[in-house]
Nucleic acid binder design. Sequence first.
DNA 1: CTGTTAGCGCTTTCAG
DNA 2: CTGAAAGCGCTAACAG
Lengths: 336, 336
Amino acid sequence: MSATLADVAAKAGVSRQTVSNAINTPRIVHPATLQRVMAAVDELGYAPNLHARRLRTSSARTIGIRLERHDDGIHGVLLDRFLHAVTEQAAGLDRHVLVFTADDADAEVAQIRSLSQRSLADAFVLTSTDHRDRRIDALAEAGIPFVAFGRPWDDGSAPHSWVDVDGRAGTREATDACLATGERVAFLGWPDGSGAGDERRGGWRDAMADAGLPADLDRAVEDDPAQAQAAAAELLAAGATSIVCASDTLALGAIGALSRADASVPVVGFDDTGVAAGLGFSSIDQNLGAVAAAVLELLHGEPAHRLVTPRLHRRANPRWGLPAQQSAAADGKDAS
Amino acid sequence: MSATLADVAAKAGVSRQTVSNAINTPRIVHPATLQRVMAAVDELGYAPNLHARRLRTSSARTIGIRLERHDDGIHGVLLDRFLHAVTEQAAGLDRHVLVFTADDADAEVAQIRSLSQRSLADAFVLTSTDHRDRRIDALAEAGIPFVAFGRPWDDGSAPHSWVDVDGRAGTREATDACLATGERVAFLGWPDGSGAGDERRGGWRDAMADAGLPADLDRAVEDDPAQAQAAAAELLAAGATSIVCASDTLALGAIGALSRADASVPVVGFDDTGVAAGLGFSSIDQNLGAVAAAVLELLHGEPAHRLVTPRLHRRANPRWGLPAQQSAAADGKDAS
DNA sequence: CTGTTAGCGCTTTCAG
DNA sequence: CTGAAAGCGCTAACAG
């Protein structure tokens, strides 16, 4: 059906091997021959059969990634963006991405083993790592190349490559930016104990300490807009001049509190999801493109790690939560 | 490195062919032999090299899907869920899913051609189809099997398989449910001209007509919470007893209007995203699992189509947007 | 620089 | 029911 190496060789009047060289190592074939071969390739619309190549070279050049189930929204959006970035950049490195699903960590390891052994994928990316992640030891022991997106939150796991976002740097930058509009920068985060959440709170504390200010306006709730709204209301009542949040979900709640209080102070979210764009508040972009690049870089080679610096995506101000009359003014054709 | 068919054959004291049969056509192998072979397989941890198999059988059993770039959030979440469903169900059919990215429709077609020709994937799923979709004619002409998620919005495109969600049925069900709490069911949707939006509005109109009621509380805005809030405020002022929305984004805006007006009427969104779960309003679930099943079913065979009925996911009431004191009552451990 | 030979691991003939 | 032979399309080695 599709043209093969032999067809091209026949058409160009050379051996199959020369065609192979022309494609894989063009610089070792005579320019004139090369041109003739390439012309034949174009004419026949030839593209190599990758199964044959992979069988021969026993390399899949394919990255396996588990698709997580995410009924929660934001988490899913982030992983989706990350997956997109990995896939896009992998293509530039002549690599493909195969996805799979698994119900739990053990099933994921089983899938990875299977894909690896059947040589469908030869490198893997682990997402949503947690304390004492079983997957890490299992894969390290099996000698399967992988990179974790997420730092090892405990020291017990086997040495491995990982990439993570420097949440501390993110909230620090956001806090510094907020200090321009007032000293009473509040933090709205999650209860202690979640690694990422603690990091984010730490960045706010650091920035306040560096500015010689007390880090006293601090509230912790679950990642839920209703709880966040209540907590934010208290922070406003306590005189907050801005609110740095550990997630866009919390920021959404804070915006709600602003709305009810007819207040207007800057709110900064985390993750820069569609909610932040839609409501127009600033948010910290995890910089998943950079994460993806780092992951691909570490996929082959000795265990190493990278901490990616997120970026504050500044937006003017909440457009929502303002009195309806003002909002109505935006009812025109200015939606972008 | 990994065990091969020959290893298993040697271990079991049979020919390679018998091992192949034991794996692919177990019923034609003598039970005793089969058991011996399987024991060897287990012992060696053998799994067939799929490149060799695919090379030999020239079938990839792999579905290609483009990952779209989605800065908008909701759209991304939906496609992500869909991708998850397809991947999960494909695994049950012994098929894999390969993802790729493309900047536009032409690039996508080029990618598909390439993947198909290099035999990395042999069937494709098209998402986000639109009027006069170039991809459809191109793939149909190239004879590459595919199914579109999204109905052909114009009659000009080549005959092909597609699956879509019956948005009309969704809003109709939602409207019927809302009629239980009051006759003045309003609709908050998008401007005319978007196929899906028109369908959703149509379902509301149908339900109102069937109930012998006027479909007069109807507003159209862009998919933006701020605009939605303003429009919803007007609908409330006009006496709406509930608001059916064309998206969760619009519903989010409506909840904001409720909050400002201290009103409490049912709001129904569309897509059942995390926002609906988080804020606790009802929403129409597109039923992407059923869509995925239909897509896989149509992937091979004559052109055909399926219309999947969405389901109303009922939730008690907006938990957010209520006065802060009430919200604060939910500040306990009841987050799920 | 080009051609020949060999074989990656599997499955499809076709004999036994 | 089992075994032997052939070849899917490609590239690593070597010989010319």
